[in-house]
Design a protein around this nucleic acid. Structure first.
Length: 259
DNA sequence: ATGGTGGACAATCCA
């Protein structure tokens, strides 16, 4: 079972890269964030024409999540369920066999002093309630993935001291993140890649941030214990960095199989 | 160094 996540920063711009990657890696599930596309404009026909299933919910310009799969998904739903659908373009939940997937685009937060940062912390608290209410992480196979906009440890940022405190790397957001992982999530990436300086995002705005490896690890694959026991590998796929129109995020890929 | 670049969309918002 191959599962990956990718903040595509516009599915319409990144469609060629996504199609090429799907053809090369043949995942069972691909979680996308920041599709930035209303559903009628999502390039569904192109993806389905290549043999994949698409579940998506987007809006104009901002946000948007999708799941691409080889087999049909069951029990697909959008949003946290506590806000009349306003969070529907930031969270998609689905089931494939006995695996539950939760793909989130966590609010970035903009600035520590902004209302958006308070919204981010509240959103993470609501997400904790969502997991607590919907899953038994000790028993079920659950994967929480997506652009979580949290770099939880110093080794998850190119220079922790230089950026601290940042909306993605500060005490409040790390505590909110740990509240959720404390429910019973294992960091699949760190299980397989303990070394520092392996990142999933390099800010477009930094001068040569890619060349200087001034990166962040904010795209995650977090598995409940029963699922984490089945993880065999996790890797970052640098392909989007080399695409004709480079992305600032990478694919993050994991492989699961029962013992 | 409060910039820088990219995406969506048409003057700025967001990351």
């Amino acid at each position: 079972m191959r599962i990956a996540t990718f903040n595509c920063n516009s599915i319409r711009v990144r469609l060629p890269a996504v199609l090429a990657w799907l053809d090369a890696w043949r995942p069972d599930l691909l979680a996308l964030q920041e599709t930035k596309t209303p559903d009628p404009d999502f390039p569904r026909r192109e993806i389905e024409g290549a043999g994949w299933r698409v579940e998506c919910r987007g809006e104009k310009s901002y946000n948007g999540v999708a799941v691409i799969s080889r087999s049909p998904l069951e029990e697909v739903s959008f949003g946290l369920g506590d806000d009349d659908g306003a969070s529907g373009t930031r969270l998609v939940r689905a089931r494939l066999g006995d695996l539950s997937l939760v793909n989130t685009y966590v609010p970035q937060g903009q600035d520590l002093a902004s209302d958006k940062f308070a919204f981010k912390l509240a959103w993470l608290a609501r997400l904790k309630d969502f997991f607590a209410a919907n899953f038994d992480l000790r028993r079920e196979r659950v994967l929480w993935t997506g652009d979580l906009n949290v770099a939880p440890e110093p080794r998850d940022v190119y220079d922790s001291r230089a950026v601290w405190p940042h909306v993605c790397h500060c005490r409040e957001v790390i505590d909110a993140f740990r509240e959720i992982t404390g429910l019973g999530f294992v960091d699949v990436f760190r299980k397989h890649l303990p070394e520092a300086d392996v990142f999933t995002f390099w800010d477009y705005r930094g001068r040569d941030s890619l060349a200087k490896n001034r990166g962040w690890r904010i795209d995650h694959l977090l598995a409940s214990a029963p699922l984490a026991e089945e993880s065999r590998d996790c890797r970052v796929d640098l392909e989007p960095r080399r695409a004709p129109r480079p992305s600032d995020h990478t694919f993050v890929c994991a492989d699961f199989s029962p013992a």
